[in-house]
């Protein structure tokens, strides 16, 4: 399952790269083609963001409740931000209410720096402290798939992909 979620993380990062490319490409001669692509993909952005948020929530619950990886303090902060996104976007989809995109993006934007910091202290543990908490240290790395995909990277990639997808509509003419 670690590898499965790691592959999904890579796909989420691919979504982010694609979104950055479109953001840049609309200012180039490729604009008409990119705008056409955006208008084609934009209606799917909310359902896709919801799917990512729901998968993130289920994956996180799998790792803590099935694989028994004890969540650390920073894991909880990321969960607090990311779990409600699935509920908010699900509610918005059910009610066909686009106003939920703002709060969802805000929550993802709060989760992102926490994930970045968490990922950094996994690689450089002395940035946080010189010791490990015996129960749930934030510096402990449960796994690194492909040598770099760990739990905070998964959370950070999900947050970035959600922001990328939810910001797609705003650029639609």
């Amino acid at each position: 399952m670690q590898r499965f979620f790691a592959l999904l993380t890579l796909m989420a990062l691919a979504v982010v790269v694609l979104r950055i490319f479109t953001a840049i490409a609309v200012h180039t001669p490729m604009q008409p083609a990119v705008q056409r692509w955006i208008s084609y993909a934009a209606p799917a952005s909310s359902p896709a963001a919801f799917a990512i948020a729901a998968t993130t929530m289920l994956g996180s619950l799998y790792f803590s409740e099935v694989a028994n990886y004890t969540p650390c303090k920073l894991c909880w902060f990321q969960r607090i931000c990311l779990y409600p996104i699935a509920l908010i976007l699900g509610y918005g989809l059910a009610r066909r209410d686009n106003s939920v995109r703002g709060p969802a993006m805000l929550l993802a934007a709060v989760a992102l720096p926490i994930s970045i910091y968490h990922y950094l202290i996994e690689w450089y543990p002395t940035l946080e402290s010189g010791t490990c908490d015996p129960t749930a240290p934030c510096t402990a790395v449960w796994f690194r798939q492909f040598g770099f995909v760990s739990l905070p990277l998964m959370a950070g990639a999900a947050a970035l992909a959600i922001i990328s997808l939810l910001s797609l509509r705003s650029t639609t003419p």
Binding site: M1, R3, F4, A6, L7, L8, M11, A41, A44, P47, A48, A51
Partner: peptide, 17 residues
């Protein structure tokens, strides 16, 4: 898009397994 996304997830699952 939904079909493509489902296909991608299925491929990821197959690769992982």
């Amino acid at each position: 898009i939904a079909v493509a996304a489902t296909l991608v997830v299925v491929v990821a699952l197959v690769i992982a397994i």
